[in-house]
């Protein structure tokens, strides 16, 4: 179908953009890469009165790494981030997740910040923000504020971006040394939204034991769900690995299954999703553990 009618503006600066958003009120929407908003308009699932097109805000087309943080500007396309060697080295979860976001052509246009603002509980970047406890900078004519991941996701396709606000950048911490991460998911076809997905972060203690294990889940609730699974990883360490051969995260998988409350929809039953969450938890933790081990070795003098 074709989109409904709307007013349109294409500001050249953040100052212009926020004053347009302020002037047009709650009926205005930001148009970033359009890879989620345009389908909604074409399907007539959204009917904003005015679109503020931010594609000319060249000042927001950046990805930077400094002070232990990766900062992604609102006009950085998924592929700009994925191909930024410094950013994906500083926070490898970014590269692992973005490779699973849609297809290369969609990633040419879709923005990473837009995908976080869009708050699709099936979107990989929402889980990345939640797991890494990143934050989103929101600017309006009244000033700016930093929203933490914990408070940012309100419901499916609903984030805490208030009328008049523009998300200018997303901040994510670098992956600490001694930690590893992994992203794994199950989707009908490669590039589709995941039926279930898990991003995991594993930290190793001084003896090579798992001192922290957390996982974020896609498509199991209205917002990305983060679980601390450290208590279920007690037996796993680099030392136990030497005798057991493979790390055993089965207990963590069972704990995740017990804690999650997935729902039914046309893509999968709740029971199947719970099963996937268990299996993917084990895989993601094993992947993150292997990654942490690899990084620990690399960082040895």
């Amino acid at each position: 179908m074709k989109p409904p009618t709307f007013g349109y503006s294409r500001p050249e600066s953040v100052a212009q953009a926020v004053s347009l958003l302020a002037a047009r009120g709650p009926d205005a929407k930001v148009l970033a890469g359009g890879q989620s908003l345009m389908p909604l308009l074409n399907l007539r699932l959204a009917a904003p009165g005015h679109l503020v097109d931010i594609n000319r805000l060249a000042e927001l087309a950046y990805v930077s790494v400094s002070g232990g943080q990766v900062t992604i500007g609102a006009l950085a396309r998924h592929n700009d981030v994925l191909r930024d060697p410094l950013a994906v080295a500083a926070q490898p979860l970014l590269g692992q997740a973005l490779a699973l976001v849609a297809h290369p052509v969609i990633r040419n246009r879709g923005t990473t910040v837009g995908s976080i603002v869009h708050a699709d509980p099936a979107g990989e970047m929402t889980a990345v923000l939640a797991l890494l406890e990143g934050s989103v900078r929101l600017v309006s004519v009244a000033g700016e504020r930093l929203a933490s991941a914990e408070d940012f996701f309100l419901g499916p396709l609903e984030s805490d971006v208030r009328a008049g606000e523009l998300a200018t950048e997303v901040l994510l911490p670098e992956l600490p040394s001694g930690a590893g991460c992994a992203f794994t998911e199950v989707s009908r076809r490669h590039g589709d939204y995941a039926v279930c997905g898990v991003a995991a972060l594993v930290e190793l203690g001084p003896q090579g034991e798992v001192s922290g294990a957390r996982a974020a889940y896609l498509s199991v609730g209205p917002v990305p769900v983060v679980l601390d699974l450290t208590e279920a990883c007690g037996g796993v360490s680099l030392v136990s690995l030497a005798t057991a051969g493979t790390p055993d995260f089965a207990q963590a998988g069972r704990l995740a299954m017990a804690r999650l409350q997935p729902g039914d929809d046309i893509h999968a039953t709740a029971a199947y999703r719970r099963h996937l969450a268990g299996v993917l938890t084990e895989r993601a933790l094993a992947g993150a553990f292997a990654h942490a081990r690899e990084r620990a070795w690399l960082s040895l003098p």
Partner: peptide
Amino acid sequence: CEHGVCGACTVLIDGVAVRSCLMLAVS
């Protein structure tokens, strides 16, 4: 499809492949 799924409408904009059904002509 007009929602980005089929790829039939892909064109190159300044050399970059994009879905023309997900872009406004004015953009």
